[in-house]
């Protein structure tokens, strides 16, 4: 994979959505104000006045409208801030999409701490857990704009319900392509610990295990998890999940994948959603113990 990072996930999202609107008449972007400025800058609202729909600050209707469009044969791409895209209209996602047998691509910004200064109202560490509680959803947590690019295009083309959690943070390199795979970033021995890192945070995890006997695996797709590859790649009996969302979100799927052996599985993610501090994303990563030092402390603790 390329070692370059030429843009952000947000700008890459806009580029891909522009391509999809141009190439597929079924593509419809549904907004609730968030991202509208970017769509205007790209000229997409002017170019596709009927297929870029901004419902205003009405997130329940944003999902309901997407459901109605999907029932009419369109492929909605619905974007917004994670708390307002997932948590606020969760019943609409459950009933106006999933229960109808309708599908859409939901793309969020904000994640767990991107808007660190905005506080709890703009943070959604439970988003992946919530979406994963619904049947049939694929969840991608890209760690790099190139990953977002590939996963958004493949997720759109796949036709199912897809949630993509973008971030202002990005790993130095892209590690996965459009396939929902688990890859090995660092090898260790069966006597050592294995880290399964999801999305942004790879560089911190690699720095954390410097000098340790540790295998580092990576995925941008926590649901459905690439269980067969995980089973094949985990050699030892000690696994730590490094997840940039609510701690424990992916533990069940990992446990299912490794249920054929005795394993210790620990989850390291957002343990305390009510932070009570502002600052920067880096501050919050440190607060949650997801910087290199925090990860090392967690991994080496008994």
């Amino acid at each position: 994979m390329a070692e370059t990072r030429t843009d952000t996930m947000r700008t890459r999202f806009m580029r891909v959505v522009g391509d999809l609107l141009a190439s597929d008449d079924r593509a419809v972007a549904v907004l609730a104000v968030i991202n509208r400025g970017l769509f205007e800058e790209e000229g997409l609202i002017e170019r596709y006045p009927n297929r870029v729909i901004d419902v205003g600050i009405r997130e329940q209707s944003q999902i309901g409208v997407a459901g109605g469009l999907a029932l009419e044969g369109f492929r909605p791409i619905v974007s917004g801030y994670a708390p307002f895209l997932v948590e606020r209209p969760f019943e609409q996602i459950k009933l106006s999409l999933t229960h109808q047998g309708a599908s859409a691509v939901l793309v969020s910004v904000g994640g767990s701490w991107d808007s660190a200064g905005a506080g709890r109202t703009h943070q959604a560490p439970a988003d992946v857990a919530l979406i994963s509680a619904l049947p049939g959803w694929t969840v991608h947590v890209p760690g790099h704009p190139d990953e977002l690019d590939a996963l958004l295009r493949s997720g759109y083309a796949g036709g199912g319900s897809v949630y993509i959690r973008t971030s202002v943070e990005a790993n130095r390199s892209a590690h996965v392509s459009a396939r929902s795979e688990i890859v090995t970033l660092r090898g260790g021995t069966p006597d050592g610990v294995t880290l399964l890192v999801v999305g942004p945070g790879v560089d911190e995890a690699l720095a954390a295990v410097e000098g340790l006997d540790a295998t580092v695996l990576y995925t941008a797709t926590p649901n459905p998890l690439d269980a067969r590859t995980l089973d094949a790649k985990v050699a030892g009996d000690d696994l730590v999940i490094i997840e940039p969302y609510l701690a424990g979100t992916s533990a069940g799927r990992v446990a299912d994948a490794l249920s054929n052996r005795p394993m210790r599985i620990r989850s390291h993610g957002v343990h305390q959603p009510e932070v009570g501090h502002y600052g920067s994303p880096r501050d919050h990563r440190r607060f949650h113990g997801l910087d290199a030092r925090g990860i090392r402390e967690f991994v080496t603790s008994a």
Binding site: V28, S61, I63, V65, G68, L69, L71, E72, H99
Partner: peptide, 29 residues
């Protein structure tokens, strides 16, 4: 998904009009 002719699954109140707006926008396209 079970009843021929039924356009939306309903029961939880307050979902139909949002879906209808989406269907009307789709019809316009």
């Amino acid at each position: 998904l079970l009843v021929p002719g039924v356009e939306i699954s309903s029961g939880s109140l307050g979902h139909g009009l949002g879906l209808g707006v989406g269907m009307a926008l789709g019809g316009r396209i």
